[in-house]
Design a protein around this nucleic acid. Structure first.
Lengths: 199, 199
DNA sequence: AATTATATTGAACGTCGTTCAGTATTGTGC
DNA sequence: GCACAATACTGAACGACGTTCAATATAATT
């Protein structure tokens, strides 16, 4: 058969991304394959390659959606808070909570590597940049008189720290280290860093 | 042919691990395959499976060697220093320097996942534990009167932070964030955290 | 109804991890 | 020196993978 036109290209794209997300959430990114994905949406492999450049492209688009959700979730968590310190701490906590709630999706965002000659497209880099910017914005009220360079560095440090906790937690290495509460650890990291940073 | 006995089992193991390390260092872990590895040491796939349980097992043993080297490197870097703060900072710097010098090996240590039902063996966990212990030991002189729980947590926080920086640096996300020097960032993270921790 | 255009297929290619029956070599006992 | 058992090693086979593209079936147009 051909040209069934049951679905537009955009519809197929959406179906594929949703099926991919389901697979990833339930069985991890290792379980993702072109054939499984195709049969999940009632098409065959070939069709996927009309809509996506290849699997790397598809994963990039899944990751973009994950970053969007994470960003939205952090904004939501920020909304009811006024105190600058509380807001910063909340960024860390909601990041950890998101990773904990969607471990496979979160893992895929930072573990997926494009072939070394290929760079992610600008629109994707912007989504990453937006996450750092969130921290920078919240840091500003606490960094009286500090230059924008210091703020950028502090945001990167905080983000890296929280990110590192996530990774070690997900790969179970924090249990080995004797850490009982990941949220406590995050709190301690951010609080102590901020104490040092603010002065 | 059969029973060539050109090499003992232990010799084959060593040859395979060394060939694997060469492949990983030069082309990344994606380039590692049983067939390539076998032909690199002049044997066939079957032989590899006499010496290793499977590729996961082989990778675990490569990672164990990487952890050994990293640990040795950090001890070396520590040796000439006396000041407790300098020693702690050196731990971070030598960690970053190692990751930078051997990015593919370092990546493999924390990106490789065993199938979810399988746990790493105790001897491997001990090697991970030993890294945290290194930080804890160096932290002790700075944590006058703090309980061992506080020290464990501080070590985990510092380690996670530096680890997070490594990851974001390797995946180029720190460039996106506007960070110019990874070593400066590490320094800032550790210094500020310690300032907060020591009080 | 015939023709053109396009949406979709699925077989094909080369690769992968893993297994294991079979084969070639060595050590042992005579 | 020879037969036999024990062992070291092979490599074909299996199912699954990403990716491609000639072939085909349907829809749109004439």
């Amino acid at each position: 058969m051909a040209r069934r036109s049951d679905h537009s290209r955009e519809e197929i794209r959406k179906m594929a991304l949703e099926a991919a997300e389901k697979l990833i959430a339930e069985q991890g990114s290792k379980a993702l394959s072109a054939r499984k994905l195709a049969s999940a949406i009632g098409y065959t492999v070939g069709t996927l390659y009309l809509v996506f450049e290849n699997l790397d492209d598809l994963i990039l688009q899944v990751n973009a959606r994950t970053l969007d959700r994470l960003h939205a979730r952090m904004l939501e968590a920020l909304a009811p808070l006024d105190d600058p310190t509380e807001r910063i701490l909340m960024l860390g906590h909601s990041y950890i909570a998101f990773a904990d709630a969607h471990p496979h999706h979160w893992e895929l965002v930072f573990e997926h590597r494009l072939p070394p000659e290929k760079e992610p497209p600008q629109w994707y880099k912007d989504k990453v940049r937006r996450m750092f910017a969130l921290v920078e914005t919240e840091l500003e009220p606490l960094a009286a008189g500090r230059g924008s360079k210091a703020i950028t560095q502090a945001a990167a440090a905080l983000w890296s720290g929280v990110h590192g906790i996530c990774i070690l937690a997900i790969s179970k290495q924090l249990d080995v280290a004797g850490v009982d509460s990941v949220q406590d650890l995050t709190h301690s990291l951010m609080r102590n860093y901020l104490k040092g940073f603010v002065g």
